[in-house]
Design a protein around this nucleic acid. Structure first.
Length: 491
RNA sequence: CGGGAGGUAGUUCAGCCCGGUAGAAUACGUGGUUUGGGACCACGGGGUCGCAGGUUCGAAUCCUGUCCUCCCGACCA
């Protein structure tokens, strides 16, 4: 994102809405805080979903589906869990409407009150562990490696398009293991799946880390996360993987017989990423002209735009363009030849730029004479005249280039925005003037963390997994510390 | 739930202070001319002004109530 937008941080949401709404990605629906994902935006989600799903399957997981409604009592089985989610649950209390006796319209039928209210899942741990109880009896049933693609609802007080909508799409993996070590290993494995997906597919560099106790998932023993940096200097939690210990197994009485014929509680993990990733993608790579998509998840990788005058030249261009189209298709490139007569070339250029299509090929009468086309890349906006010989291979290579370049650019920005701070003044100054991650010493207490958050709105994003030990003094209290942690203001 | 702004055509908004036939741009439809960075001309379709009351000869405009949306905060993936 360009400097103008960075300096317009206050209006960031507005810019984002404009781009995304007008760009055909999404709309707010009539339902408070929910989103309509238009076809192009959904195609983007599908690309991400399919790539992730393949990675889950490659690591031995299978998909299943569990109910949307959860009996209220399930939620309260795990103390920390209910504490964490109770405040944001949508509740179903009745199952029928009737005609309003007082006039037109319908009212809730008071006769149809549910004996036990149902909550709309904010996450599925409870109903899944309730189900797992019947699925697990012996160590031979373990591990249980299941994922579900679903929608969940969290009645947040304030919503933000893609980053925090009331309803969102996600996947949630829920696994059961015979040993603690195995569950921890799974937790870390899935974190790495998320990290490599973010980096290899989304071109989004992430920091792999572990959350502090106060930022932990409700009911988890440990929460691992990938943290990304947006172009405005704010951090975004892009995915989480939780080691749940035996908390849910105990709450839902999920035991198995081990080899020694003894009853034991299973060890659990859960992990998820959501449509928030679409937001991450937009905010990590976009510029003032709209979306910039990494080729690996762009629904459309190449668009060919003809420029013609009159029917005769149109036919000539058509046949050449279709040749290029077919060559690209044979290479497995997602390509569209837009020869619609409804809009002019300039309009098409702007349109596909806004949609983030990585490569545009323009072909006109002038090009035909010289046996060339004009190839424009979205990431750098460079335009180049390229000969028709081997054009498909050239473009295919260009897509790889763009993918790498986007990651490189984002990583350079990210790395430049991890700044050490050794005094409180420096810490505050960096937050206000530079943004990004700030590596600072922390005394390890939740109290200090809370005070820092209160004073600066910055939270500890994570303790990086590869963090090096270093003695120092807490940025706030001056108490001894053994390592720096990453602070940032976050979405 | 606190503080602010707002609800008028598919969309973005003007009109409201100072009451008097519902407006613009854009989008849409038809016809034509165009096409190397969001074309132009002509004609055309489209809104019970969020909802409910009140004041008035007359309300988008004034008054009361109500619902909803957006932004800022508390809360959070």
């Amino acid at each position: 994102m360009s400097k103008e937008i960075t300096s317009r941080n206050e209006d960031y949401a507005q810019w984002y809405n404009d781009l995304v709404l007008k760009g055909g990605l999404a709309d707010y629906s009539a339902v408070r805080g929910c989103m309509v994902i238009k076809p192009y935006g959904f195609a983007l989600w599908e690309k991400m979903r399919d790539a992730l799903d393949k990675m889950f399957k490659d690591t031995g997981h299978v998909n299943a589906y569990f109910p949307l409604f959860i009996p209220k009592s399930f939620l309260s089985r795990e103390a920390a869990h209910v504490e964490g989610f109770a405040k944001e649950c949508a509740v179903v209390t009745h199952y029928r409407l009737k005609n309003d006796p007082a006039g037109g319209g319908v009212v809730v039928d008071p006769e149809a009150k549910l004996e036990e209210e149902l909550i709309v899942r904010p996450t599925s741990e409870t109903i899944i562990w309730h189900t797992y109880k019947d699925w697990v009896q012996s160590y031979r049933d373990l591990p249980l490696l299941i994922n579900q693609w679903a929608n969940v609802v969290r009645w947040e007080m304030r919503t933000r398009l893609f980053l925090r909508t009331a309803e969102f799409l996600w996947q949630e993996g829920h696994t059961a293991h015979a040993t603690s070590d195995e569950a921890v290993e799974e937790t870390r494995r899935m974190l790495e799946v998320y990290a490599s997906f973010a980096e290899d597919f989304m071109a989004l560099p992430v920091i792999r880390g572990v959350k502090t106790a106060s930022e932990r998932f409700a009911g988890a023993e440990d929460t691992y996360c990938i943290e990304a940096l947006m172009q405005d200097g704010k951090a975004l939690q892009a995915g989480t993987s939780h080691f749940l210990g035996q908390n849910f197994a105990k709450a839902f009485d999920v035991k198995f017989l081990n080899k020694e014929n003894q009853q034991e509680y299973v060890w659990a993990t859960s992990w998820g990423v959501s449509t928030r990733l679409i937001g991450a993608l937009v905010m990590a790579h976009s510029d003032d002209q709209g979306l910039v998509l990494p080729p690996k998840i762009a629904p459309l990788q190449v668009v060919i735009v003809p420029i013609y005058k009159g029917e005769e030249s149109r036919q000539l261009i058509d046949s050449k363009a279709k040749e290029i189209h077919d060559q690209l298709k044979n290479l497995g490139v997602s390509v569209k030849y837009d020869n619609s007569d409804n809009s002019r070339p300039g309009w098409k250029f702007a349109e596909y730029e806004m949609k983030g299509v990585p490569v545009r090929v323009a072909i006109g009468a002038r090009d035909l004479e010289n046996n060339v086309v004009e190839v424009a890349r979205r990431d750098t906006k460079e335009k180049k005249t390229v000969g028709l010989d081997g054009i498909a291979q050239y473009i295919d290579g260009l897509l790889t280039d763009i993918q790498h370049n986007l990651f490189k650019k984002a990583k350079e920005y990210r790395d430049q925005h991890i700044t050490p701070a050794d005094s409180w003044e420096e810490f505050e100054k960096l937050l206000d003037e530079k943004g990004g991650f700030i590596a600072a010493h922390w005394d390890g207490t939740a109290e200090t963390e809370a005070v820092i958050k209160e004073k600066t709105k910055a939270t500890i994003r994570c303790i990086p997994l590869d963090n090096k030990k270093e003695n120092g003094q807490c940025i706030l209290t001056g108490k001894p510390s053994v390592q720096r942690v990453l602070f940032a203001r976050a979405y």
